[in-house]
């Protein structure tokens, strides 16, 4: 089977000969224009480092207060998690679950998976779950909505400023840092390279045993 000599465009199914790209070059599909690959410098090392940072940042951004307001002498602060709980307490559990998954659960799982995968590749360790982790990470990607949540924070701030004075907390700063890290993470993660390395590791492992 020599199918690896060819490639197909995921959106128009054009049969392609994959180009050998250097760092900094991009390959677009000649028929539909889709960005096919874009090799990154030290993709595994950078993904590993960014995953560790993101994983650490995740906890303060979920647990520390992001914002606080004071109305008639009463003060209230909110965290990512307390927003979910507030919706639950109002019996809006379908919405609460959606917010919980998109802003807490999926980002955590995604960053843990990328930590596990890049860690294994960095230390050249084989693991039979690598393939499953890669597939989960791929499917989760679309459902992580941290940047959207950030816009939600901005709009909420504008609305709240009309009611009462606002205060920002460490949770918000950690959250902004987390968004920057996850954005860098997705742009540095070279899917194609990761799959190639996983296959290599598996072959080496099969030869060794």
């Amino acid at each position: 089977m020599n199918s690896t000599n060819y490639d197909a465009c995921p959106e128009c199914d054009l049969l392609l000969k994959p180009a050998q790209l250097k760092i900094g070059e991009k390959a677009h599909c000649p028929r539909c224009g889709l960005l096919l690959s874009r090799p990154r410098k030290q993709s595994i090392e950078r993904t590993f480092a960014l995953s560790i940072t993101g994983f650490i940042l995740f906890f303060p951004s979920v647990l520390l207060p992001m914002m606080g307001i004071t109305v008639l002498g009463d003060a209230n602060t909110g965290t990512l998690l307390s927003g979910v709980i507030a919706l639950f307490n109002e019996n809006m559990w379908p919405v609460a679950i959606v917010v919980f998954l998109a802003s807490i659960m999926f980002p955590l799982v995604h960053i843990s998976l990328s930590l596990l995968i890049s860690g294994h590749l960095y230390f050249k360790r084989s693991n039979r779950y690598l393939v499953t982790w890669m597939r989960w990470m791929y499917h989760l990607d679309e459902w992580i909505m941290l940047e959207v949540y950030m816009l939600g924070i901005i709009v909420a701030c504008v609305k709240l400023m009309a009611i009462a004075p606002l205060k920002f907390g460490w949770g918000l700063y950690a959250f902004i840092a987390l968004i920057i890290i996850t954005t860098l993470l997705t742009s540095n993660l070279d899917n194609r390279l990761f799959w190639q390395r996983i296959e290599q590791l598996r072959k080496e492992n099969n030869n060794a045993s």
Partner: peptide, 13 residues
Amino acid sequence: MLDIFMISILVDL
């Protein structure tokens, strides 16, 4: 989803 996230923040605060 912006609107939904905004509501979760407003409801909480």
